[in-house]
Amino acid sequence: MALEQAMNISKDEIALYDRQIRLWGLEAQERMRSSNILIVHMSAVSDEVSKNIALAGVGSITVLDDSIVLPEHLSVHCYLQDDDVSRPIAQAMASYLKALNPRVSIIPDVEPIEEKPDTYFANFDVIVAADIDIDIMIDLNNKCRDFGKAFYGTQSFGLFGYVFADLNEYTYSIEREKANVATKPGPETSTRSIVSVNVKRDGTQVKEVVTKIEKYKPLDVVLKHPIDLSVHLKPRQLLKVSPVLPTFYAMRGLKKALFENNLTREHIQEVCTNCARALGLPAGIITPSYVSNVKLGFNTELSAVASVLGGVLGQNILNYLARREQPIQNIAIFDGSSFTAPIYCI
């Protein structure tokens, strides 16, 4: 591999990131290297995301969080130590992330997100909001759309969690063996179209590079206009839809009940069942055992769940920057009670 092809990537960086350069190529690694990522609020999931993208060699990670490290944070944030108590959490996490990969610029920002001007968010390529108020998340998503930036929202609660993606209009390429039936440009699904197909030879193999475009919906549209899954799925398939999906729609009501100290099993059952019906799902998927698990862990983060969600989200951010592989369209669910992680287009 000639160093001239490496653009601005040094010989040491080529050696350090050799595995992913072989997977994605130098051009993709250069895009990662020049990218600026914003993490809004440090949670167990965003800890994992930050670690994964730092080790992959992104350009910069800005940690935006105005909270202070409390003793209870030590059991959630795997990098924090006793000495970090009373420090700004953004500064504490920045220190540990910098130690993971000194080549990545880590920038702590302790100003409240509400005080940031809209133009602040134009400086980033990808913005991740972790476990923040749903209305703030919607507002942030809309700002990302205004500036053409990728947005991810995530939250974990007990055994469950989700990753929501709004990449606006995202163009990417997939390289694969050429099939016997020619791939033609045009619509592939309701959200995805094939833009172009280029055939190339790789030794004895004939491959095709398929360029696609995905179109996304913002979070506020998704929440205001639930998709009727009964139109798209058979009755047997509806029964297999994860109950975490209607819980995602119920999140505003559940958090309000938690704030008002009224998060009872009966309330969870009612709100989640109503959201399931709005999605065209049978009410029976919201079982008493599921409701009990939500009640037990709603305000709790588990490191094992965060590790899975953080891995999924971190990898999708890298795929987005590399413009390779199929992105999340548009919500990935993790259900720790059944060890499943389906993706739904909603």
Rank of each mutant, 00 (worst) to 15 (best):
H232M: 10
V291R: 08
T287K: 02
L238M: 13
Y290Q: 05
I268E: 06
R265V: 00
P246E: 13
E266L: 15
V244Q: 05
T247F: 03
S289K: 01
I285F: 14
C275W: 09
V231L: 11
R236M: 11
P243A: 06
A283M: 03
E260L: 06
K256E: 12
L239N: 03
K240D: 14
K234W: 12
F259R: 07
P243H: 09
V231H: 11
C272P: 01
A278R: 04
K240G: 07
K240T: 02
T273P: 13
A276P: 04
Y290R: 13
C275E: 15
N261W: 04
L245M: 05
F248K: 09
E266I: 06
P235T: 03
L254R: 14
L238H: 09
S289Q: 05
L254I: 13
A250Y: 05
A278G: 02
G284K: 13
V241H: 02
L238I: 11
P246D: 09
T287C: 11
L238T: 08
K256D: 11
Q269P: 01
I286N: 14
A250D: 03
F248H: 02
E270L: 08
K256C: 01
R236W: 13
L245H: 12
I268R: 06
F248S: 07
K240L: 10
V244A: 00
S292P: 01
Q237K: 09
A283K: 03
F259T: 06
G280V: 07
V241L: 10
H267M: 10
P288N: 05
F259N: 10
Y290W: 06
H232G: 03
A278N: 08
I268N: 09
T264W: 06
V244S: 10
Y290M: 00
L254N: 06
K234F: 07
L238Q: 13
E260C: 05
L279R: 15
L281Q: 12
N274T: 09
I285A: 09
R236L: 01
Q237V: 03
V291F: 01
M251T: 00
K255Y: 04
S242G: 06
L238D: 10
L233D: 15
V271C: 13
P243N: 05
S289E: 07
N262A: 12
L239A: 15
L279D: 12
T264D: 08
N262H: 13
C275F: 09
S289P: 01
G253S: 10
